Computed example of a mutant assay.
Amino acid sequence: MTFSTRTLQLTTGHRETAVDITDHCAAFLDEVAAGGDGLLNVFVPHATAGIAVIETGAGSDDDLLAALRELLPADDRWRHRHGSPGHGRDHVLPGLVAPHATLPVVDGRLALGTWQSVVLIDTNGDNPTRTVRLSFLC
């Protein structure tokens, strides 16, 4: 059994966003998977971001952000009150969009469905830099 890990530093900016990181995952696997089978864990070590496996480019990523805005409005209802107004909602986000995903790797490649991508979801405009940890276990 082998284990390889790497961290990525990504700039997400100062407004909510969905960042497709599938290519980063694939590049990591090209280096460490050697055509083998295993599991890729994608983890964001932040209390205000998550990892989703969704379709991108056809509007689903924007739809997810819109749904999160509706479910978690940036207003003064939140008990967690530091940062920008409504920032407490960002701390609830990982309860809906988990901060991790574990994905199958077959023959050294992500075994995703046709329209699936690995996406970093970040609603926290107060923190424009994010770390993502990729870990491959085979």
Rank of each mutant, 00 (worst) to 15 (best):
D30F: 02
P85C: 08
A27L: 12
F28I: 07
I54P: 04
L112M: 08
E31H: 09
F43I: 01
A26E: 15
I54W: 05
T11D: 14
H80F: 12
E31F: 00
A33G: 09
V119H: 00
P94I: 10
D61F: 01
R81E: 12
T102S: 15
D63Q: 11
A34L: 14
L8V: 06
A27G: 13
L64W: 02
P99V: 02
W115Y: 15
E16G: 14
V106F: 13
P128T: 08
A98N: 07
G57T: 10
D61L: 02
L110T: 01
A98C: 06
R89P: 15
H91L: 06
A18M: 03
A18F: 05
G35N: 12
D61M: 03
G57M: 06
A26G: 05
D61I: 00
S84M: 07
W78P: 10
L71Q: 12
L134G: 09
A34Q: 14
L65N: 02
L39H: 02
G83L: 06
S135A: 15
G13D: 04
F3A: 08
L29D: 11
V42G: 09
F136P: 07
G50Y: 06
D76A: 10
R6H: 15
G57K: 08
L96Q: 03
A67I: 13
V44R: 00
V92W: 04
T48N: 07
H46D: 12
V132T: 02
G36L: 01
T131I: 12
V92F: 11
G35F: 10
S60W: 04
H24S: 15
G125L: 12
S84R: 15
R77Y: 06
E55D: 14
G83Q: 07
T22C: 09
Q116L: 08
T48Y: 00
G59P: 13
D20I: 03
S60D: 04
D90V: 12
V42W: 04
D75C: 12
L39S: 05
E55W: 02
V97H: 04
H80W: 10
A52H: 11
T2R: 14
G36W: 01
H80A: 13
H87I: 13
G13Y: 10
D20E: 05
R89T: 11
G95P: 11
R89E: 10
S84K: 02
H91G: 12
D20Y: 07
G95R: 09
D76K: 03
S84C: 04
L40D: 04
H100E: 01
V32M: 09
I121E: 03
L112D: 08
F28H: 09
A66D: 15
R109C: 13
G88C: 14
Q9K: 13
L103S: 07
L8D: 07
A27Q: 14
P99H: 06
D122Q: 05
L64I: 02
C25P: 10
D20P: 14
D63L: 09
M1L: 13
P128W: 04
V44Q: 00
G35D: 09
T129P: 00
